[in-house]
């Protein structure tokens, strides 16, 4: 239960950073926190207390495994997260070159 509450707090921290921070880089860091929190949560879903790593070494081995699927899924999610973070950072760099500022509230040419 402790871990679940931890992930929930992490999610809220991530959202807080995204919504309230005005610096592009801090927003991206907020995303990283949010993403890791959710990945952490996903990995926890398959966790069983006292279970073994899901590596089958013999046919009639012990049945007490951790669920391996979330781990595989989290790996995929991390890869996707890498792509989004990289793309977002490249946007941030380009935005800085064009606007000479990292403040997202000052970048507001599209409105109405």
């Amino acid at each position: 239960m402790f871990f679940f509450i931890t992930t929930l707090i992490l999610i809220i921290i991530g959202l807080y950073a995204i919504v309230t921070k005005t610096n592009l880089i801090r927003i991206i860091i907020g995303f990283a926190i949010l993403e890791y929190a959710i990945n952490f949560f996903f990995a926890l879903v398959g966790f069983k207390k006292g279970a073994l790593a899901p590596i089958i070494t013999q046919v009639d081995g012990p049945k007490n495994f951790v669920d391996p699927i979330p781990q595989a899924l989290v790996l995929t999610a991390i890869v996707i997260g890498l792509a989004t973070t990289a793309l977002m950072l490249s946007f941030a760099i380009k935005l800085y070159q064009k606007h000479k500022t990292f403040d997202i509230t000052k970048i507001k040419e599209l409105k109405g």
Binding site: I11, L15, I18, L24, I27, F31, L34, E35, I38, F41, F42, V45, P70, A77, T84, L87, M88, F91, A92, K94, L95, K98, I104, I107, K108, E109, L110
Partner: peptide, 24 residues
């Protein structure tokens, strides 16, 4: 760039919540 960044922030929030829902 401005549009893409704003779009990406909101779109990624949606995607991450979708992942969260899938985990649940």
């Amino acid at each position: 760039l401005e549009a893409a960044f704003k779009y990406m922030v909101m779109g990624e929030i949606a995607s991450l919540f979708l992942l969260f829902a899938i985990a649940l």
